[in-house]
Design a protein around this nucleic acid. Sequence first.
DNA 1: CGGCATCCGCTTGGATACTG
DNA 2: CAGTATCCAAGCGGATGCCG
Lengths: 213, 213
Amino acid sequence: MVARDYGQYDGITRGLELVGERWALLIVRDLLVGPRRYGELAAGLPRIPSNILAARLKELQAADVIRRLPRSRVVVYELTPYGRELEPVVLALGAWGFKALGDPRDEQIITPDAMTMSLRTAFRPSVAADLPATAYATRVDSTELLIRVDGPVLDVTRGEGPVDFAFATDAGIRRLISGELAPDRAIACGVVQVLHGPGELLHRFATTFHLAA
Amino acid sequence: MVARDYGQYDGITRGLELVGERWALLIVRDLLVGPRRYGELAAGLPRIPSNILAARLKELQAADVIRRLPRSRVVVYELTPYGRELEPVVLALGAWGFKALGDPRDEQIITPDAMTMSLRTAFRPSVAADLPATAYATRVDSTELLIRVDGPVLDVTRGEGPVDFAFATDAGIRRLISGELAPDRAIACGVVQVLHGPGELLHRFATTFHLAA
DNA sequence: CGGCATCCGCTTGGATACTG
DNA sequence: CAGTATCCAAGCGGATGCCG
């Protein structure tokens, strides 16, 4: 029950004791998008065994990272204020790991919550501030993602809505965000399919969301 | 040999695959201070079994995080440029975990490298920029630590040198950095012992290094 | 059903001993 | 000093079962 300790007394060690166990930071990643039910977490982490998920949820509660709240018949897990302070850690690790992303293996999937956090990672507020407000839509794993950029503020939600630019894509979007693939070439070679709106807006998208390798 | 994967394709997952294994980030923490030999790493991580240390060093090399270089008879490990980019991750996690540090348990130790990174975590460049350049010295685990602050730049090294203020302390320094304990009270109740220089400089130290809970 | 708990085979990690 | 080898315990992964 108690996290295995490292026998040292400093912040990094303490952090690892609290969220260093396997799967823990991925649970935090998904909860950074919003509160989730047990089944939603399990769906977003398809390979996590249910006993491990249950164990992590208890440990994260004991660490004051998440809260379990019974909300009218259903149980919902959400980050505590302290848990929300992990956002810089998750974003920093996500940015670092993004640079080591190669091409996806067959069994690797992209979930809507992972995509949401990846977009937050790659988002450049200072660049977006100088661009017109824009709403994008894309589909991840049969979930519609609504990406609204308004000045330096990014908001990614599930669901539909009026957008300036809608597109379909796959894991190849990584090359677009890393700058390896130019927007027009991404459309030309089919990595991105324009569903709605002028194709030039993909260039704005790639400028707004960028993380160089 | 290959890190266990999570079956997902995004930056956080990739990051966890590369440095998410037990002990890995602590090795990176110590190497962020400087290149280290195998024995030095083992000394800084007293509870790591040698087979695990050896395994992690190989995995981190395979992940292009560290490099093993035979330097004139002795082998030294050092971070690659990509590995050095983990510094924001380590600092962010250290800052987060610091806030959850309680009082130390008996078996918990503070190593010089851990202390060095903790100081880097708590360092406030913008505050230090407005203070006079100052050199501090403190002793951690029979190692003398030289802490030089010059404007917004911090440099922590092992070894001796001329300092403005030297002090002895223990794990209670956490309360000083967190602001729970005022500098004069820290001296009064013996948490900090002034070895050299005017006691008022401890206030400057606490202003320079601060991380509120 | 959603939310877990249990069981079991397997992989890691931990402690110690050993070697070039 | 810089690792490797061995053995055992603990944690993980996968399947399955229970219970409100």
